[in-house]
């Protein structure tokens, strides 16, 4: 794989209100390095609605439109329409939202914008729950996880449903470009964002962003945890470009257990529970590889 150097340009200033070890913070910093200053972004309710700081200060150094929870995509469409109406073609329009704002409350607007082929880049920074409001489960919370609304307790009521797949939903829209990414692989993420910016039409990236506060993990291990998510294929790294799947195979494979034991949110799971999840993860990975084979350009 050819490495893309991460641009030195900084568009997120120090002084933001992110937690120590926040993956979402790194995610935006990298995304805006990739996109540069000629970018306008929309941000719905999410951690990043708070992290830029308190009015009149803002640590994001490009124009930001803060919007209602379910409107990241529709707002980005509106910005794009205005730029088009004014003949301004060389500006990236970025919708930047968390997983709840994307896959729960915002999925209708996202689906609409993608179906309309609106020329926007939508990036979901996925920390796998409603972290800004205090770790409530979202449809992007993985199976087995503790959250404050799947609190385990005596009835073992952890999240019992599998994680919703944003990228597969986008692929089903026949989106020109969609991919997963992870903040632990900055060159890969930057390259994907730059690729997205080079394509006209809707683009959707979902970047796994470890959250020490919500995952009950050590802040200094966020990068390592992201790597384990990828190496265990719990978070497979792949792109779908015009229906063609390209899967990044991890250099070494680790077990789901290796990944889970870095985080307190999975602490309650027994050996059998983890074995069941391992089986699902393996099956999903096999299916993904089959999709890659099936869609390979002859």
């Amino acid at each position: 794989m050819v490495k893309t150097p991460v641009p030195a340009e900084e568009n997120v200033a120090p002084g933001h209100m992110g937690c120590p070890g926040c993956g979402a913070c790194l995610a935006l910093r990298l995304a805006l390095k990739a996109l540069g200053k000629r970018t306008i972004m929309t941000v719905p309710a999410c951690c990043w609605a708070v992290m830029p700081g308190v009015f009149p200060y803002c640590s994001i150094q490009i124009p930001v439109l803060f919007t209602a929870f379910e409107t990241a995509a529709a707002s980005a469409s509106g910005v794009r329409a205005a730029l088009d109406a004014k003949g301004q073609k060389d500006i990236n329009v970025l919708a930047w939202a968390g997983d709840g704002g994307t896959l729960d409350i915002g999925i209708q607007a996202l689906s609409g914008a993608v179906e309309r082929r609106d020329n926007i880049i939508y990036i979901c920074y996925d920390n796998e729950a409603y972290m800004n409001t205090g770790i409530q489960r979202s449809s992007s919370t993985p199976i087995g996880a503790w959250t404050t609304t799947t609190p385990v307790g005596q009835t073992r009521a952890w999240k019992s449903e599998p994680k919703k797949s944003g990228v597969e939903i986008m692929a089903a829209h026949r989106i020109p470009y969609t991919a997963t990414a992870c903040v632990s692989y900055p060159e890969d993420f930057v390259k994907k964002v730059q690729k997205a910016a080079s394509i006209v039409g809707p683009k959707y990236l979902q970047v796994l962003s470890p959250c020490p506060a919500g995952w009950k993990s050590d802040p200094e291990r966020s990068i390592q945890i992201g790597r384990l998510a990828v190496e265990s294929t719990v978070w497979p790294m792949y792109e779908v470009e015009d229906g063609v799947y390209t899967v990044r195979k991890p250099a070494k494979k680790v077990s789901v257990k290796d990944y889970f034991r870095t985080q307190g949110r999975f602490r309650h799971l027994g050996e059998k529970d983890i074995e069941e999840i391992q089986k699902t993860v393996d099956a999903e990975w096999e299916l993904l590889l089959k999709k890659e084979t099936m869609t390979a350009r002859k």
């Binding site: 830029p52 009015f55 994001i60 490009i62 124009p63 930001v64």
Partner: peptide, 8 residues
């Protein structure tokens, strides 16, 4: 560049 509608 400005931020529109941030926190107060």
């Amino acid at each position: 560049p400005r931020g529109f509608g941030s926190l107060s």
